[in-house]
């Protein structure tokens, strides 16, 4: 089967791409659309580095076919900041020191965003459950949880 054209919305913008049937959404975003903020980690859904938001829900983009994104809406880490202004979650991660090697960060922030979109004022338990699909080996997660709490507070004030 040859490449097929798909149309999807990425970070609010309609995009077209020619994709192979065996191409993953990670590959579509990184290799075709140049959105390399989506990290390619384990490839089998164990680490959460490739997390993106698909129609409002987080998914491991390594386990979604590019073809399955046809007609759908994808938010990647590149879609959060407004110009030079960081999204409150990004700013909170920077301020709290929640970023070390940074490889898990895009996926972690997107999981946090999906959580806050559904639950604007989460408890600590809701935060840890919401981030439990994103492995981080550097931080011990403490400052990540603090950052999400901080961002939730700031976003509700705004």
């Amino acid at each position: 089967m040859s490449k097929q054209a798909i149309i999807l919305t990425v970070n609010g913008v309609a995009r077209q791409a020619l994709v192979e049937p065996n191409q993953t959404l990670t590959s579509l975003l990184r290799d075709e659309l140049g959105l390399t903020g989506t990290k390619h980690g384990c490839g089998v859904g164990d680490c959460g580095c490739c997390t993106v938001i698909l129609d409002g829900e987080t998914v491991n983009s390594c386990l979604v076919l590019a073809m399955q994104a046809q007609g759908r809406e994808v938010t990647t880490i590149e879609g959060l900041a407004k110009g030079a202004e960081l999204h409150p979650l990004q700013q909170a991660f920077v301020d709290a020191g929640a970023i070390q090697c940074g490889f898990c960060t895009p996926g972690m922030i997107l999981s946090a965003k999906a959580l806050l979109d559904h639950t604007p004022q989460p408890t600590r338990e809701e935060i840890t459950k919401g981030l439990s699909g994103n492995l981080c080996r550097c931080t011990g997660y403490e400052k990540i949880v603090e950052a999400v709490q901080d961002a939730a507070g700031k976003m509700s004030e705004a």
């Binding site: 390399t36 903020g37 390619h40 700013q91 920077v94 020191g97 970023i99 940074g102 960060t105």
Partner: peptide, 16 residues
């Protein structure tokens, strides 16, 4: 951290 803003936005470049 100097690298945190770029790591938070996906701009930081790793080998891949």
């Amino acid at each position: 951290r100097k690298d945190a803003p770029n790591k938070s936005t996906g701009k930081a470049r790793y080998i891949e």
